[in-house]
């Protein structure tokens, strides 16, 4: 979905940034601020969250902060449903999550995939 939406919007994305952290090769506006907030939220680091939220607020405003937090929160649920129910990873994005994309993103190194080989 990141690849599809970015292609349509004309933004360059380096898929390996998904697993290794943001590099200069991904050009989504305010991507660095959004990733910093996401990483702080996953780590449940209150100080880092406050810092990242404050910077994002200055850049994009109240509603963007709320929606960025909401999206990050949503994926704390989606991942648990997918992984605990055992949804086949090959069905992600309605089957559009091709093996080459997983390889490029570094997802093939995840336990779920390596343990199934």
């Amino acid at each position: 979905m990141l690849r599809e939406s970015s292609q349509i919007a004309g933004y360059k994305v380096q898929l390996s940034d998904v697993t290794s952290g943001l590099s200069d090769e991904t050009h989504i506006p305010q991507g660095d601020l959004l990733v910093a907030l996401s990483e702080a939220i996953v780590a449940r680091d209150k100080d880092a969250i406050a810092d990242a939220r404050s910077i994002l607020f200055q850049a994009l405003g109240n509603d963007a902060v709320v929606d960025a937090v909401a999206v990050a929160s949503a994926f704390h649920g989606f991942v648990r449903i997918a992984d605990a129910i055992g949804i086949p990873y090959a069905t992600a994005a309605q089957g559009g999550d091709a093996p080459d994309v997983r390889e490029e993103a570094g997802i093939n190194e995840f336990y779920r995939i390596t343990s199934s080989k």
């Binding site: 979905m1 996953v42 994926f75 991942v79 993103a105």
Partner: peptide, 13 residues
């Protein structure tokens, strides 16, 4: 981008 990074940090394939 948020969705992908959060999912990856959870090692979700």
């Amino acid at each position: 981008l948020i969705a992908a990074r959060v999912s990856a940090l959870h090692q979700c394939a």
